[in-house]
């Protein structure tokens, strides 16, 4: 059985290493500050005992006031999982750091979120539209797209 790690415990470890990086933590997820997302992800990937080597999925959710990007992490070595979230504000030019350098599986998924939701991922090597064509106006998965 894949063990879903408690967000609180991981948050304490992250706070110890990068003070001020965690915004809040719940039973099954933790929300990190967008500026420290890259560092926190690097820590989660390599920290002994955690070693989240497998990025299961990335999703973006539009909550009108902010966009939330959800990272489902899994460790194949220890068979446990964790949900990490990050938020970005503003509807004109929301941006988050890219994690492609850590997990290559993020490549197409970040491009898809950029395409359909309009969140830019800073540091992505090839950030352009993936499923829609060049010149398509609007971002369909945003809640205000009709």
């Amino acid at each position: 059985m894949t063990v879903a790690l408690s967000g609180g415990e991981i948050a304490a470890r992250l706070e110890e290493r990068f003070p001020g990086s965690v915004v809040e933590s719940g039973q099954d997820s933790l929300l990190v500050k967008s500026e420290s997302l890259r560092a926190a992800a690097g820590f989660l990937k390599t920290a002994p005992g955690l070693e989240f080597d497998y990025l299961t999925a990335i999703t973006g959710v539009d909550y009108y006031d902010y966009f939330e990007v959800v990272y489902q992490l899994t460790s194949i070595r220890h068979n446990h999982s964790l949900v990490v979230k990050a938020r970005c504000y503003g509807r004109d030019n929301p941006a988050l750091p890219s994690v492609v350098g850590l997990w290559k599986g993020a490549d197409f998924q970040e491009r898809e979120i950029y395409d359909l939701m309009g969140i830019r991922f800073e540091g992505h090597p090839n950030l352009k539209r993936i499923v829609l064509w060049d010149g398509f106006t609007g971002y369909p998965l945003r809640k205000d797209y009709l």
């Binding site: 492609v100 350098g101 850590l102 090597p125 090839n126 352009k128 064509w133 060049d134 010149g135 398509f136």
Partner: peptide
């Protein structure tokens, strides 16, 4: 691990090709 710089690899401009394709679709 960083992904190597891709831009130099192509002998064509992929952004240009994408742009032209987008124009064809819109037309």
């Amino acid at each position: 691990m960083e992904i190597e710089e891709r831009a130099g690899l192509y002998i064509y401009s992929d952004t240009q090709l994408d742009k032209e394709e987008g124009e064809r679709i819109e037309a």
